[in-house]
Amino acid sequence: MAEDLQRNFRSAYYEKVGFRGVEEKKSLEILLKDNPLDVEKLSTFSQRFPLPSMYRMHVWKVLLGILPPHTDSHPLVARYRQEQYEDVREALKAMRFVHAATPYTELYLRMHQLENQKLMRRSELTQPGEEDEDFLAIARAMEEIVDDPVDCYWLIRCFVNQFNHKFGDSIPHLPKSLEHFLSQEDSRLLAHLKTSGSLVLLPYSLWFRRCFAGSLPESSLQRVWDKVISGSCKILVFIALEILLSYKIMLMGTSRPEAVAKFLSNLPQENTDAIVTKAIDLWHKYCGTPMHSV
């Protein structure tokens, strides 16, 4: 009896923290015991299921190539990563780009610029451009998710690099894709957004360039990034779609595009978990569930 109660409590708890079943966690644990790790299977798992939070960072690091598939290389490679972080940071200190009180996010930006050979001379530094602001937004969100600065830097850097490399060409087409799926789900809402002039003013760069960093709270955001990191940028369209559907009444009630843009750029932080859950369901409905044996 007591055991039953405890078990019920436990699965209710798992439900709450995002495991739809203990089974999923177990199958992930089996995947993680492989040596070398099967990166493709890990991607598929992450596309289909939410990652248990205790394994999330590890899986992200493998999917982003920060750690190689061979688990017995992990200590060596982790040491290389750590040294590289320290080398670049120390150089920036010596050049006085950063000092003890510089915020980590700015340090990460300068490190990223140095490594990509895009660092200006100190005397020629300008205000951060749009691309820098996108980086900083993603960095601020990642900082909330990851404690260790070395891990944090590598995750931001590889996330941004992979995102631009894999999806750079698709990003400009995402607004059209959003319009398409909105016409399927709610053509009245689409018509209203179009005629009121709101459609062109939606916060596309916040949604599609920053991947909702600074828009969704981190607990919801990381479930979206699971999908982005494992290979989908389409998920971003469905999050945007579900946001529009969730605030339909409010959106239908206003014809001022600026007010719509302002509201959507500063979303209420309450029911974002539900929005993400519904968006993932919609995404599976339209794009199918990847059918790898996991």
Partner: peptide, 8 residues
């Protein structure tokens, strides 16, 4: 495995 180490 060697490739992964060398890349890093």
């Amino acid at each position: 495995q060697a490739k992964g180490q060398l890349q890093a």
